[in-house]
């Protein structure tokens, strides 16, 4: 085996491995997925101020949409890999951060803005909108964090 041929083979191996990694990253948070999941997130959080059973129904629908669209997109990706513990940790941290944003926004809406707990512009609706904005803002950061875990 000629060393130049060996080096050429190694270059090909690295190039193709990078191509697979690029495809994995390309499947992380594509725009249609982000928009649909943001809608689910908004519905799930905004339903908190609705009277029962609409509150429960809205919350279940919203968060099922948010999680479900991710599962569907993952299933139909052309390159799939098992989530690592680090990746699961990143997603968990994102969810905790969004819950914190929602909680803080709702409190602000109540005590600072004096918004009511029901109606079109309720505390939860405003807090849900702020949470969705935060979700859209941190999605590139989460994508970058997961990309760093792909070896």
């Amino acid at each position: 085996m000629d060393p130049q041929d060996a080096q050429s083979s190694l270059d090909t191996i690295h190039r193709l491995q990078d191509r697979t990694r690029q495809e994995i990253v390309r499947g992380l948070f594509p725009l249609p997925y982000v928009l649909i999941s943001a809608l689910g997130l908004f519905a799930g959080f905004a339903a908190a101020d609705l009277p029962d059973p609409w509150s429960t129904a809205g919350t279940v629908f919203g968060f099922t949409l948010w999680a479900g669209v991710g599962i569907v997109y993952g299933h139909f990706a052309s390159v799939r890999r098992k989530a690592t513990a680090r990746e699961a940790g990143i997603y968990l941290a994102m969810m905790v951060a969004l819950l914190a944003v929602f909680g803080a926004s709702r409190i602000t809406a109540h005590f600072w803005l004096g918004l009511p707990s029901e109606g079109v512009v309720s505390q939860s609706v405003v807090a849900a909108a702020v949470t969705v904005a935060a979700y859209l803002a941190i999605t590139p950061l989460v994508r970058r964090g997961i990309k760093a875990t792909i070896d």
Binding site: I13, I24, V79, R80
Partner: peptide, 25 residues
């Protein structure tokens, strides 16, 4: 064999890879 090495290199970083992705790449 170049074709086999290419296939295996593409599969290495992933779990399941679609046939179409391998063919196109």
């Amino acid at each position: 064999v170049p074709a086999r090495l290419s296939i295996v290199a593409l599969l290495a970083p992933a779990d399941w890879v679609d046939f179409g992705f391998l063919r196109d790449t």
